[in-house]
Design a protein around this nucleic acid. Structure first.
Lengths: 148, 148
DNA sequence: CTAGTTTCGTCAGATGATCTGACTTTCGTC
DNA sequence: GACGAAAGTCAGATCATCTGACGAAACTAG
């Protein structure tokens, strides 16, 4: 990095810094709010739970982990009362993972922090550059996100 | 995500997709080239070794892991002959982690793949949008990268 | 409607990656 | 020269992740 830091960094790495910053900030602010038992991996799973609940298999696929890993993380989230599992009325094999009350409190904080961070970035970059950044990243997602 | 996928995604997450795509691609192409024993975590450490070698403590700090974790990963890279440790001539406590021949072969492939991926992104986004993306990300790095 | 196949989730076991805490050696400073 | 700080290692614990195998329910084709 001695050499790297002054040179032209590759685009992928440049993308990584903001992401990492946001993730760290989220975790830190959640800890401040008393939710200090959440891990990154748990958050990545929890972030993908839809309003009506989501199947474990879907969570695993979207988070790019195996069903087993997703199950392990959901177990922990459930033990800590962030989520609950209910039977899927349309399929007796499946269960829906839903946000519990405690989980919804976390989601509210997360949304607030995301908005704050984005406002800070906008203040640094300017509104126009931020809008362009978003537009470009959305186009880039078309070829870099296997799930859409 | 059922809800998320159509809605406005937060900028941090949008940044994540390209990064993940690049990382996956790098690992896959290295595996094709016969370097199938490299893990992501090892790569993240190795990517920060400077031309003259870098201290373990510096690697740890830049990769945002503890010295112990960095040491564990360097052990494995050393066992697999990707790097070597030499005494630091300026400080008897310290040792420099340097790229060995095998490691340099990996670096060469990584640089090639990075260039390929960037070319693909440029083809999709257009040259101007790509240049703007880079410029904006570099500015964003000023406030999101704790190490510069 | 039964037989075969797929899907949903779990169990079991292994490995990888990460942390905290304690320690040794060396450096720098006063 | 003594003492605090820095470089790295050792030990132990935990978290996250994988592969493989499995049981139960659902779907599909005769």
């Amino acid at each position: 990095m001695v050499a790297e830091s002054k040179e032209r960094q590759n685009l992928g790495l440049l993308c990584f810094y903001p992401y990492r910053a946001l993730e760290a900030r989220l975790l830190a602010e959640l800890a401040v709010a008393g939710f200090d038992d959440i891990t990154l991996a748990q958050g990545r799973i929890a972030a993908r739970i839809g309003p009506a609940g989501t199947r474990l298999t879907d969570l695993a696929e979207q988070a790019l982990v195996t069903k087993q890993t997703a199950g392990y993380l959901v177990d922990q989230l459930e033990k800590a009362s962030y989520v609950r599992r209910v039977p899927d009325p349309t399929d007796a094999r499946a269960r829906l993972v839903q946000m519990a009350e405690r989980g919804q409190a976390v989601v509210a904080i997360a949304r607030r922090v995301e908005a704050e961070v984005e406002a800070e970035w906008t203040a640094h970059l300017g509104g126009e550059a931020t809008a362009q950044l978003r537009a470009t990243l959305e186009r880039l997602r078309e070829i870099t996100d296997p799930h859409r």
